[in-house]
Write a protein that binds this DNA or RNA. Structure first.
Lengths: 151, 151
DNA sequence: TTTACTGCAAAGGGTTTGCAACATG
DNA sequence: CATGTTGCAAACCCTTTGCAGTAAA
């Protein structure tokens, strides 16, 4: 099931094609930034990673890639939204440690046993409520190691 | 542990006092709006529920109440943030069904067994990463019954 | 050549903030 | 009285959008 890192680009191309969008060099460069990154990134971080990307185009391309299911957007109370490769692309189901002080986000995973127990529960709830579910988010909110000592 | 609905006000007063803030009539009215509401509310909804509340004061008071641990803020990709009573006040540990089309939010709960299995996992992860954890969020993203049929 | 994409600059809009009047202890 | 709160209006700033030029099918 997990997708090898290498064909994230071809996956992206396919998914874009399914939405009648092109996999342009700018979009490729954008996806490349996320492949290289180990954690969700804000827009300034994306542009810092590749200065040839224009702000408005990045926002537009992230929206397009999100609609195509290539990119996932994470919104916290931090100023900037953060973006990462969608799980279907990264092949890496995970959760987030979100620092409520500095807004940084790290990934972590759960034991498969707990993960599937939760998934079953979620499916039951969704069905009972007539809710069509795409995804869940299961994140830890707190203070990262740095911020905990900083204070 | 769960707090009876009735003393949400006194809890709020205590927590505000701990932060050297007053429990003014406006703040009381604001908390009252949340006590009466069954789901997280946006700012326009709060003001619609009590027109005597001024926008900027509500934002400021929500920030104060959030800092005091009385109110919890939920940010989604919807335009407005949503607010609800903090679990310590409502005494009601729950999760959210978030509609990615209309932004509406409903509450739901999990079986205590699954809930505590997840809590244990989270605690372990937090410890290993040096993360000081206050809370977790475990929400379902999808389409509410209305939006699913609407399309 | 037709349609999608890009980038600049400007607009949009939820949230925050300055400040003067007010209430509270 | 001294300090915290309120409300209006203006400022903020992340994000979106208009538009003219450019690349791709």
């Amino acid at each position: 099931m997990p997708t090898a890192g290498g064909d994230a680009h071809s996956q992206a191309e396919e998914r874009l094609a399914a939405v009648d969008a092109r996999y342009t060099s700018k979009r490729k460069a954008l996806v490349e930034v996320f492949i290289r990154s180990k954690r969700p990134m804000t827009l300034p971080e994306v542009i810092a990673a590749n200065a040839s990307l224009a702000q408005s185009s990045v926002y537009r391309n992230l929206a397009t890639l999100e609609a195509a299911g290539v990119i996932h957007r994470i919104v916290t109370s931090d100023d900037h939204a953060r973006f990462e490769l969608a799980e279907a692309i990264s092949g890496h189901h995970h959760h987030h440690l979100i620092c409520s002080m500095c807004g940084s986000i790290e990934d972590f995973t759960l034991h498969p046993r707990v993960e599937s127990a939760v998934a079953r529960e979620f499916a039951g709830v969704a069905e009972r409520r007539g809710f069509t579910t795409n995804a869940h988010q299961m994140d830890l909110i707190g203070r990262c190691a740095e911020c905990a000592t900083a204070e």
